[in-house]
Simulated assay, not measured.
Amino acid sequence: MTTLSATMNWQLLAQKALDGERLTMEEALSVLEADNDELLPILQAAFTVRKHYYGKKVKLNMIINAKSGLCPEDCGYCSQSIVSTAPVKKYTLLDKDTLLAGAREAMSRKAGTYCIVAAGKGPTDKELQQVVEAVKEIRDTMPLKICACLGILKDGQAKQLAEAGVHRYNHNLNTSRANYPSITTTHTYDQRVETVEEVKSYGMSPCSGVIIGMGETNQEIVEMAYSLRDLDADSIPINFLNAIPGTPLENAGRTPAMKGLKVLALFRFICPSKEIRVAGGREVNLRTLQPMSLYAANSLFVGDYLTTAGQEVTTDHHIIEDMGFEIEMCAL
């Protein structure tokens, strides 16, 4: 019997995406389940969509781990969670001068977006005020977009961040609704959705993504993409699990590089006009195939992540140049 993926014209999926049509579950699964010999035609089709919306521009983002290792949550993938025994640095929220220094470093790396990330269920009022003060000064002195990732927000906190000048708020769905209880029990999938909807209501750009490699099925990967399409997330970071010793998922295997590239293509087909960002774990999962990710994705993190190392920033700059793409500088 001939499978759908064996007979699929991938450019038809690209045209469907460009026409604003939603892929069927069967079509979406055909991307993930395609033979590896089909990878280049799939990426070519994904590039058709990517080029339509973003040309050959690549957006760069930099993270600062603004508060580390003091999180009461039990997220199984995270080295900073309360259930992790990984030897990570532990410190309270960084002071304003350190956050400002991070912003200057982001500019030196040619990043257009500076991501202030703090471990925890959500910020205290004091922590929020520290972030607000830093954001105001960054906005006054540097041409950077600011993304905050501070957890679940209390009443009034989203309004304060928006008024301070935060452009974007990140709160990842991480996995499918069905898989969520196996990953985290200290908060719910719906709380994450509600947080994204809250920041949207105050005019901040919603950023929400996933982590691939946490025991989800291919159908659940498709459901994640559908969920982010329905949520209308402007920016979608695609993380690949970096299994850290000392975390509950320490023995999870890596995502094969070709599978990872198919995932990126899938998200481009389902969320065609959105910023698709190759995020954490790309170095250890995509390995030598990282350059090919740019045919589907239009955004990268540069430098280190929260508690894991990235690759040399110059390596990413060279990948972009060698692949014939160019860095998109920040335009506020």
Rank of each mutant, 00 (worst) to 15 (best):
S84R: 05
G112F: 03
K126V: 04
L29P: 05
L128M: 11
G55Q: 05
Q157T: 01
I244W: 02
A309C: 05
Q11T: 14
I64L: 10
D140H: 02
E250Q: 13
Q191G: 02
K145T: 10
P123D: 02
T185V: 02
M258C: 11
I319E: 11
A233Y: 04
N172A: 07
A331F: 13
T315V: 13
E38I: 09
E250P: 06
L266G: 12
L128F: 06
M8I: 14
D190N: 11
R282H: 05
A257R: 04
Q130G: 08
A17C: 10
G281I: 10
E216L: 00
N9P: 01
K136Y: 03
L23H: 06
V132L: 01
P272E: 05
M142Q: 07
P87S: 14
T255K: 00
M329G: 15
G209P: 14
I238L: 13
R50W: 03
L13D: 03
E194K: 14
I146A: 10
L70E: 00
T185E: 12
N65C: 06
E137C: 07
V196F: 00
K67L: 01
T186G: 02
M142Y: 09
V302S: 01
T315S: 13
Y305N: 02
G260M: 13
I63E: 09
D234T: 03
D97V: 11
K16V: 07
A309R: 15
C78Y: 03
N61C: 02
V88C: 10
I42P: 10
G324V: 04
D140E: 15
E283Y: 10
D74N: 10
N174G: 10
A86H: 07
L300H: 02
K56Y: 09
T7F: 02
R229Y: 10
Y295L: 15
A309F: 12
K274M: 04
L261Y: 02
I82E: 02
T185L: 00
G102W: 03
L306H: 08
P72L: 08
T7R: 13
Y91E: 05
E21C: 13
V284E: 15
G209V: 06
S84Y: 12
E283A: 08
H318T: 12
E326F: 14
R50K: 06
E26T: 15
N170K: 12
E194S: 10
V222L: 00
M8P: 05
G281N: 01
P123G: 04
K110F: 11
F269C: 14
I320E: 04
N174H: 11
T124R: 12
S30T: 05
Q11A: 09
Q160R: 15
N65S: 08
A243M: 08
R282M: 09
A279V: 13
I63P: 14
S81E: 11
L39V: 02
C271E: 06
K96C: 03
A118R: 00
L94M: 01
Y54Q: 13
K121T: 03
N174K: 09
S201H: 11
G253K: 14
T308D: 09
M25P: 09
E133R: 12
G69E: 09
G165F: 04
L12Q: 10
G324C: 11
D125V: 04
A28S: 13
E105C: 03
L228E: 11
M329H: 15
T217F: 08
L306C: 01
V263M: 00
Q219W: 01
L12K: 14
I276N: 09
